[in-house]
């Protein structure tokens, strides 16, 4: 505790604070989390390949490849042992691909992966030390830098541009129904087209204990309640906007979560509220990513205020 109160607080806090047991991650090695995460993403990958064909493959291969190469290059530069084999770079690259449209220009995909690994992860000290989810950092950078290139949506099985559910909703046009969304025919970035597959993968992660259920539950709950209070259809907003991708794979990233169970619940709720506010009032297609980035930034604060006081105290 004395260490945590010293000047080195901030991003290093995660490694310095000693919280009362049980430590959730203690028994699970990084390798197993990574392998399980990649495996749980496979249904989504296959589904997207079926929907978008080689274009989706191109985005995924480029994102993963660039992430691996960047990781290797930065590790070499930092003179550290090469950790690329732990696979975290693959996960980051793959998740980044899920946040992009299948039409994203190749160079933008590569740039995003480089930013994600170099600026989102390695500058903070590499695997496990990043306060922000690396894929989100890459995606937000791209979203702010190249909005026009990223907001072009192509329908599945065709080369036709479609309006994303958000655009339809903003324009007041007829909205795609639940069936269309579940079947993956309406969406914006790739993750939005793969609702069922990602939900499946996410549930596996929760059952295996790699993602704390409190984060997705808090997030879903907050989005539903927020939208319902505004007279919106809560289910519809849960199905669109990539909420499922965000809940399990972006917000649910254990590295960037608060360390206490309560903290994780509050974190999830915070992401849901920020998402609702940005989506409803800002009508921004990147609402999910901004929401998670914001809440990632608040994690040290949540750790400080929602810390279990002492061993055995109610947490």
């Amino acid at each position: 505790m004395a260490v945590a109160k010293s000047k080195g607080e901030g991003i290093y806090q995660l490694t310095l604070i000693s919280s009362p047991p049980p430590h959730i991650h203690a028994a699970i090695s990084v390798d197993r989390i990574v392998h399980m995460t990649i495996a749980s993403l496979l249904p989504g990958v296959i589904w997207l390949l079926y929907l978008f064909g080689w274009q989706a493959l191109r985005v995924m291969v480029l994102a993963v490849g660039a992430a691996i190469l960047t990781e290797m290059a930065v590790m070499k530069l930092r003179g550290k042992e090469n950790t690329v084999y732990d696979g975290t770079a693959v996960v980051t690259g793959l998740i980044l691909a899920f946040t992009l449209p299948p039409t994203a220009p190749s160079w933008i995909v590569v740039l995003g992966a480089v930013i994600a690994i170099a600026l989102g992860k390695q500058v903070f000290g590499g695997t496990g030390c990043n306060p922000f989810n690396p894929a989100i950092v890459g995606r937000v950078f791209l979203g702010v830098a190249f909005p026009t290139q990223l907001n072009v949506w192509i329908g599945p099985h065709s080369s036709e541009t479609i309006a994303s559910p958000l655009e339809l909703w903003v324009a007041g046009e007829a909205l795609p129904d639940y069936g269309e969304i579940l079947a993956g025919t309406a969406g914006s970035f790739m993750g939005e087209f793969a609702f069922v597959a990602l939900l499946l993968g996410g549930l596996i992660l929760i059952l295996r204990g790699y993602v704390d259920w409190r984060v997705p539950v808090g997030l879903f709950g907050a989005v539903a309640v927020f939208m319902a209070c505004l007279g919106q259809d809560p289910l519809w907003h849960l199905l669109t906007g990539g909420v499922v991708l965000g809940a399990f794979y972006l917000a649910g990233d254990p590295v960037t979560n608060p360390i206490t169970p309560w903290g994780r619940l509050v974190f999830g709720i915070g992401v849901g509220l920020c998402f609702g506010i940005i989506r409803y009032y800002g009508q921004d297609p990147d609402a999910l990513f901004f929401a998670i980035l914001l809440m990632n930034g608040l994690v040290p604060l949540l750790n400080r205020f929602l810390r279990s006081r002492r061993r055995g105290a109610a947490a």
Binding site: P105, L119, F141, V144, A145, F146, P147, Q149
Partner: peptide, 17 residues
């Protein structure tokens, strides 16, 4: 393609860093 983010405040922080 212009990287719009570089003209915005975050671009300054990235460059500086």
């Amino acid at each position: 393609v212009n990287w719009q983010i570089m003209q915005l405040p975050p671009g300054a922080f990235f460059t500086m860093g």
